[in-house]
Design a protein around this nucleic acid. Structure first.
Lengths: 327, 327
DNA sequence: CTGAAAGCGCTAACAC
DNA sequence: GTGTTAGCGCTTTCAG
């Protein structure tokens, strides 16, 4: 067993409370005593046991971070940033993966609730009702979805979608397909609204689709049949699968059809053609979410809503609309 | 504050110890009492506080999982599998990212040590010495590297490398470049040894390189200059960067040069050409690592070594060696 | 500035 | 089968 506060107290000839203070309120203890205690602690390799501390303070100094699928390349940069940022605040992060299953999500939240001071819910699959109910157990901040009354970090996908559609329109694409995500997806809805607000393009909505390259692959036939020359896909994975599927049917990208993704994952930069995409500020969102959560933990929940700007990265998967075939 | 064991005891007219037993040793309590307690607990939304429990049992029922870079697509499947598997054993997993920094790695291990029963070290960047020293604080299992005296899960990269080189040789590539990873990488070393053991191919070693697409991109010039027509890259990311770099210099893959990657990440399947690669059993490794760790936690460390087989997935980035130009 | 004592939520002997 | 009694390692009044 590692050294406890008692060992340190004994070895440095003070009482446990003094040792405790040395670590949690150094200014309250005589510099001399403090140094002695610190030296002994160092010597014994003592570190305060956070779990025990949590028992009395009610603060675990841990955060939970729940994602639907850690294998989705969209999340790792967010997780990474959240973690690094949390660490600077002396917080650690529990990452959990729900496998896209709301049941598992709920179970995980309940299990984590006691071990963390708050939970970052990234693109949760749970219903608003469930989230609100669970909120009694532990503070949340929701990323990538709007839940009323809860601190929220949004990436402005509406703006991004508008940018994408305008880009497509500017290239002469008059008919644009929106290849959406899972049914009921908050993001899909926002994209749709924003796209519809752009003048001068004829919109086709295709979906729902699995939010992976499989989904894109599967949507290729529909897209080819839709007569659209421009496509905005739910995310980069879908876009890449779609390009693959189009390619298999002999449809050239961007020669025949232009495709825009969303997320700006690394793989999109390696793809051929390199993907034009709506860049999401995932790292910034991760940091922001941690800040909001810590703030809401400390001050008891002001339900701030942070909206982060997105941008369009034009690469090679979009180009001028093909000349309409003379009919 | 959520319900505690005391609330449940009071509400169900038994003593706390009985409540405790209904959760931690149900068979020791009268079915009737148990049901009553369970009902009340359910009613109050009571869940045992694991942190408090840990204080007395010494078991947190948490595991740590440390990776150098969660954004490296090699890891998420491993993490996901480890987590899912741990959950079936009633364990939760703390995932931490060290940003490839040994200092951070050490700091994280120390911080986690008290909160977890054991740590999965995935491709650690720490020195063997440091790992052995830290091992006093908390049980480990090391994945993807051999550290003497420690439970270890290896994926047989040697076998995979051999398969890859033989595949290349079989296609007529007489000169093969090995684009290695970071200096001192355990994996690079094994690949090199295994590759050297294959007869009839002329090997060139290129590196060290950053283990990302950047590294591959940067290595393209060297590869082009090396006269090799076949390449085995440190991992898929490097391979994809390399293909990109080669492409930029007008070198066709697989027309002029065949490239094999390692890992079998999803992006490789989306790449054009689709990547031929050594498939790593990452999910199996994650599960195995959890098993070994739990076993070593329970029984006090038998230093098992598990080696998982790898396989070659032939796709489109490899093909017959070009006819040698008449000189 | 430091010591004494109580208690966080829970488990683990040991009685009854 | 269930109650009693100590703690686990730490913080936090409250005295001194």
């Amino acid at each position: 067993m590692a050294a406890t506060i008692r060992d340190v107290a004994q070895a440095s000839g003070v009482h446990v409370s003094t040792v405790s203070r040395t670590f949690s309120a150094p200014h309250l203890v005589n510099p001399e005593t403090r140094n002695r205690v610190l030296a002994v602690a160092e010597d014994l390799g003592y570190r305060p046991n956070r779990a025990a501390r949590a028992l009395t303070t009610g603060r675990t100094h841990n955060l939970g971070l729940i994602v639907a699928d850690i294998s989705n390349p969209f999340f790792p940069p967010l997780i990474k940033a959240a973690q690094a940022h949390a660490r600077t605040r002396d917080y650690h992060v529990f990452v959990a993966d729900t496998d896209e299953d709301p049941q598992v999500e709920e179970e995980l939240i309940k299990a984590l609730a006691k071990q963390v001071d708050g939970v970052l819910l990234c693109s949760p699959r749970l219903s608003n009702r469930a989230i609100e109910r669970l909120h009694a157990d532990v503070p949340f901040v929701v990323v990538n979805r709007e839940v009323k009354g809860m601190p929220t970090v949004l990436m402005d996908i509406g703006q991004g979608a508008r940018l994408a559609i305008e880009h497509l329109a500017g290239l002469g694409h008059l008919r644009v397909a929106l290849v959406s995500g899972p049914s009921g997806s908050w993001t899909s809805k926002r994209m749709r609204e924003a796209a519809a607000a752009v003048d001068g393009v004829d919109l086709v909505f295709l979906g729902p689709n699995t939010p992976t390259e499989q989904g894109g692959l599967a949507a290729a036939a529909e897209v080819a049949a839709s007569g659209a020359t421009g496509v905005l896909a739910y995310n980069d994975l879908v876009a890449m699968g779609l390009i693959e599927g189009l390619h298999e049917r002999g449809v050239q990208v961007p020669g025949d059809v232009s495709v825009v993704g969303v997320d700006d994952i690394v793989a999109g930069r390696l793809n051929r053609p390199k993907l034009t995409t709506v860049a999401m500020p995932t790292a910034a969102a991760g940091r922001m979410a941690v800040d909001l959560l810590l703030q809401s933990v400390a001050e008891g929940g002001t339900a701030t809503l942070a909206t982060l700007a997105t941008g369009l990265v034009v690469r090679e998967s979009t180009g001028p609309a093909p000349e309409p075939a003379a009919s």
